[in-house]
C-alpha cells in the first residue's frame, strides 16, 4: 500500500494526521504531507485507511 495527498484538494483539515500520525504530517501552512515515501508497513495500513475515511476533501489517495 502507498499513500499520497492531492495537494490541490487538501485544505489542511489535518484529519489524516489525527487518524494516522505515523503516516501523515503537516507542512508550514498546515497542509498534509506524507511521512512514509514507500510502502506503508502492514501495521499502519488500517490507520492509513482510516485517514482516508476521515478526509473531508477526499484528498487522500491510497494505491494497493
Amino acid at each position: 500500500m502507498r499513500v499520497s495527498v492531492d495537494s490541490g484538494s487538501c485544505h489542511g483539515h489535518q484529519m489524516c494526521a489525527i487518524a494516522a500520525p505515523e503516516v501523515f504530517g503537516s507542512d508550514e501552512l498546515g497542509n498534509a504531507t506524507v511521512l512514509i515515501a514507500g510502502d506503508i508497513p502492514v501495521e499502519l495500513q488500517a490507520k492509513a485507511r482510516r485517514a482516508e475515511a476521515n478526509c473531508p476533501e477526499r484528498a487522500i489517495i491510497i494505491t494497493e
Partner: peptide, 20 residues
C-alpha cells in the same frame, strides 16, 4: 467512529484557519 469526514470547520478554501 471510523468514517468521519465531518465539516465542523467547513470545507474547501475557507476551512477554519484556527481549527488546530
Amino acid at each position: 467512529r471510523e468514517h468521519n469526514r465531518h465539516v465542523a470547520f467547513g470545507s474547501g478554501i475557507h476551512r477554519c484557519a484556527g481549527s488546530n
